[in-house]
Lab assay of single mutants.
Amino acid sequence: DLSALRVEEVQNVINAMQKILECPICLELIKEPVSTKCDHIFCKFCMLKLLNQKKGPSQCPLCKNDITKRSLQESTRFSQLVEELLKIICAFQLDTGLEYANSYNFAKKENNSPEHLKDEVSIIQSMGYRNRAKRLLQSEPENPSLQETSLSVQLSNLGTVRTLRTKQRIQPQRTSVYIELGSDSSEDTVNKATYCSVGDQELLQITPQGTRDEISLDSAKKAACEFSETDVTNTEHHQPSNNDLNTTEKRAAERHPEKYQGSSVSNLHVEPCGTNTHASSLQHENSSLLLTKDRMNVEKAEF
């Protein structure tokens, strides 16, 4: 173990290094160091905050020279020094078990990766560091076993998940096959086929009936047209017969005018059967003409 005197000496050296690497504005270890034209180094955030307070150039807090945003430059070497100082402080805390008085939040800088452990060898070769390295080497064999167990647990979990997924996939297939086998029997399929065939026959029977009705309507229309044509021909046949009657009536009127007047009046009210309204109107006109002729003949006879 380190003596108290040596611990104090190391602590004083760390404090001196820390004062050199402090920012003059925030009085902390410089984060993202930036250098000016006057070779003074500050935190990048502190300098941008200072420049944004005034429009135009501002003055350096140490030498009062003008500073602009374009004049600022990043210093990589200074950032490396800060990183190495942080590593020294971490090693000091691990070796002594004491917390550094002016320690900052170094938890963000710590890294437990194997590459980081290899890099620590180049920091300080001390008894405390050696003991700590031995402890780490002793704890390393235990870690692979834990990793193997965790991997086995994960693989077993994956296997159970896969088996569950396969079961879920197989179950719908089985149910679907069961439904297909038990849903419709052979008799049901035959009945469905016969039902479809009967429906098709009914459709075939319905369509000819409609065509037959249309044919019957067409035949009825044709018969009505033929009947009207026969009526017209009958009226045409009746007209010459009426003319013959008129000639006979004229002759009778010349011989017996008194008797014919009474008979002509009675004939006005008689309509021949089986004739249309057109034929009756023609008869009325003929009878009126005959009456006028008879009157003329009677007057001539009187004179």
Rank of each mutant, 00 (worst) to 15 (best):
A133T: 04
T248K: 07
E258Y: 00
L151E: 14
K49R: 10
E236H: 00
K192S: 01
S288G: 13
P257F: 00
T248G: 09
A252G: 15
N143P: 06
V34P: 14
G210P: 03
N143G: 10
K222G: 15
V34F: 11
K87D: 10
L48E: 15
Y129W: 05
L85G: 07
R162L: 01
Q18L: 12
Q125I: 07
R174D: 11
S152N: 13
A223D: 07
E258K: 03
E83Y: 13
Q147T: 06
Q283E: 13
I25D: 07
L217N: 06
D188V: 15
L62N: 12
L62G: 07
Q80E: 07
G199M: 07
E258A: 11
E202P: 11
Q93W: 12
N246K: 13
R135G: 05
S58M: 02
T247I: 04
S176Y: 00
L81G: 14
E9Y: 12
K37L: 02
P24T: 07
R130F: 04
C225G: 11
P208T: 01
D188R: 14
P257D: 07
V270F: 00
N267A: 04
K259E: 11
D66V: 03
N246C: 07
E254S: 06
S288T: 07
S219I: 01
S3H: 14
K54Q: 13
T166S: 07
V161Y: 10
S266I: 10
V298R: 05
G199A: 03
I14A: 12
Q168H: 00
Q209I: 05
N242R: 00
K293R: 01
K31R: 08
A301V: 04
E140L: 07
N15D: 07
K44I: 05
T36F: 02
G199V: 05
H278Y: 01
H278A: 14
S287L: 00
V153F: 09
N102K: 05
Q283L: 14
T36K: 13
P272I: 07
K250E: 11
T166D: 08
H284F: 06
R212L: 02
G274V: 15
Q138R: 05
S219Y: 02
Q209S: 13
G159E: 11
P24G: 00
L217C: 10
S266V: 07
A133S: 05
L29E: 07
E99M: 10
P272G: 04
V34H: 09
V121G: 08
N234Y: 00
V265K: 08
T163E: 04
K44Q: 02
V34C: 06
F227Q: 10
E22L: 04
L51H: 12
T166W: 01
C23Q: 15
S219C: 12
S152L: 00
I123T: 10
Q209F: 01
L85M: 04
G97V: 00
Q93C: 14
